[in-house]
Write a protein that binds this DNA or RNA. Structure first.
Lengths: 380, 380
DNA sequence: CGAGTTATCTTCGAAATCGAAGGAAGTGAC
DNA sequence: GTCACTTCCTTCGATTTCGAAGATAACTCG
């Protein structure tokens, strides 16, 4: 049972406010939406009748009558989201407030090409839906993260590296043939940023750095994902200061990625005779105080920090959140901080937080849910 | 005669659309505001009755009946704006659509301190108003640009260099004692960006670089000025790659400003035995094909371009507009372009325009008008 | 030059939204 | 406990906004 949410205009606004956790009562909704309390009441009634909202107990008093708590009805629908990596896919079902119902990870080779990969994801969605969601609860949207650039205008993959067969593939159109629903296709770092944003509710401007096999970055401006013309957030091919000269896969010398990515660290460790298979293994080495690993990670942090310096001065965010598998290595964050504090303008760092990402491993899935909900509730 | 605009909510929206030139007819307003055509007609009638809007002839047909052109009434009010520099102030009066009525430049030493300087500006405003504006036309807002950082929360000047006596001075509060009106206080590069933005109506994301005595930059995201926490847009203290090592006034080595600003070029020319007093003189030398000057400017452009490379990848704007007195030297723009095209990701430069600023010398004043109008029309 | 097309603007009944008033359900002071 | 006060939510008449239909006015093309 798939169907679009029957919401237009202000109904969508109200649902979104509840879904994102910004509002919990009719009074909250009136305050945040700008509508009159009476209109809110009417609308909420309609949404409850439509089975989208539900009343659930009462909230805590703020000095007067207790509010009647509003939640999205569990039967209102689910979202199916995936985060595609090079060798695996993480997928899950979320309720309409973005809370995960199920999350699992499956092996999946992106090199098998888009048709195969997307088919597998869709099959997995079907399985999960059959197993975990009653048939009466409709699917309301489908979204996926892609480890490469996505053109926001066409929702096609553009000039990806390491994704043979995907170039210019119309991912959204392909999914649309299987699902007549709102479809989201977005770069994985952007999804991660969108997910992280919900954990920093009072912060408008965020940079979210993903330090894993590659180095990604997503940007939140005024609480919303900044896409630019589709490529925004790239920091991996910034030129870093260096004595030697390393040619990056992109063809230019001395890209940040060639020095500070998980892939680069893995290669450097191999030169020291230490073999690791995944960036997470490097974290283990650091925790075991293997000097080569610690030194490399510290260096990577400093390099990332130097790049962030430029961006912090320019963009002047409230928060720089650092996630990705490498971020579990403490020296990384420490040396990023040191570089930024040292070199940035005092005005730019005055109230800046540089902190570990809060959203955890499912950040991208949560972000997909957040953006998808937005899309599903904004239509018409 | 000073008074606040008696506008609330949707009335303000309509006025703003006309003022910013986005709408010229009732039909435009209906399309852009989302209101029904009938509501627009009613409102417009009210605004005309209130003396804020006026009908003026008819526009060009788009294949059907000609629209009746709407303009802000010339009697609707004026804005007084100033752009403060180190040794002079540029000031002007604008009508409510942001069109300059008078602009003039006066000598004015910022080092005389805020009280004196602001007093002079206000006196100048009074003179201009008495001379150029009928008493019946009310002043609707006052704004000024500051050549230093402004805290957007308090509208105070914070840690400015080269502005003795101004640190932490509450500029807006001080002006408010003389004018009971909307007051705008903003960094000059930000004002320039806001002014420039109106010349790129279909472009949402802009970087506006001001290459003059210093190097400033303003950022427009989604059509609106991005302030961050107040320091956004700084690019002058980014570290550039360099063999030697020059200590910048900020205390750090190898800031962009120490290599590519008008001040730095002036100093470098002096070492070659060529004395110039203003950055504009350097442009003259370049036009006269003085090799030292050309080479220096070309180098400055390359350095600025290298910094922009990072920011273009990250922010992925539609346009990079280059203004400021140095921008009149052709090699500057050319070498900026070369550096960016060479090093940026193809995806980021695919549709990027790197172009001379369009708004001209009054950019900051126009920007002040634009932001001030926004402020005056948003209240309540 | 007249008929068809396109676009702008107004009219008017229907629908939505608002806001003041009031009831409901709490908190905190005495 | 009682009383004053706060907050939450609903009721209901007044107002605003909408949208379909029509009037007006121009353009285009045979």
């Amino acid at each position: 049972m798939n169907e679009r949410l029957p919401v237009q205009g202000a109904h969508g606004d109200l649902l979104r406010l509840v879904a994102t956790g910004k509002a919990e009562s009719r009074a909250d909704l009136a305050r945040l939406s700008g509508l009159a309390a009476s209109s809110v009441s009417l609308r909420v009634e309609e949404l409850i009748d439509a089975g989208l909202l539900a009343e659930e107990g009462s909230g805590t008093s703020r000095g007067g009558r207790r509010p009647r708590r509003l939640r999205l009805s569990p039967t209102a629908g689910v979202l199916a989201v995936a985060d595609l990596g090079a060798h695996h896919v993480r997928l899950g079902l979320l309720d309409l407030s973005g809370t995960p119902l199920v999350v699992e990870e499956r092996p999946c080779e992106i090199a098998d090409g888009p048709q195969t990969t997307l088919g597998r994801i869709a099959d997995a969605f079907d399985e999960l839906l059959a197993e975990h969601v009653p048939p009466a609860v409709p699917l309301r949207g489908v979204g996926t993260g892609i480890p490469g650039p996505v053109d926001p205008a066409t929702l096609r993959v553009v000039t990806p590296s390491r994704m043979p067969g995907w170039n210019d593939f119309p991912v959204a159109d392909h999914l649309a043939t299987r699902y007549d629903l709102p479809i989201l296709v977005e770069n994985d770092a952007n999804l991660m940023a969108a997910g992280e944003a919900r954990w920093w509710p009072d912060h408008e401007n965020l940079m979210v750095v993903k330090a894993g096999t590659g180095i990604g970055c997503g940007v939140i401006v005024n609480g919303r994902l900044h896409r630019g013309r589709g490529a925004a957030g790239d920091i991996s091919h910034v030129r870093v200061r260096s004595d030697s000269s390393v040619i990056c896969a992109c063809g230019h010398p001395d890209c940040l990625e060639a020095y500070a990515s998980g892939a680069a660290l893995t290669a450097a460790l191999a030169e020291s005779g230490i073999e690791v298979s995944r960036p997470a293994d490097i974290v283990g080495l650091v925790n075991d105080a293997v000097p080569e690993a610690t030194s490399l990670v510290r260096n990577a942090g400093r390099r990332i920090g130097e790049v962030l310096t430029v961006l912090v001065n320019f963009f002047n965010p409230d928060v720089v959140a650092v996630g990705g598998s490498l971020s579990a290595a403490e020296p990384l964050l420490t040396s990023i901080r040191a570089a930024v504090w040292e070199r940035c303008l005092p005005l730019a760092t005055r109230d800046l937080e540089i902190a570990p990402a809060r959203a955890g491993r499912d950040a991208a899935l949560l972000g997909a849910g957040s953006l998808l909900l937005e899309a599903a509730l904004t239509q018409s």
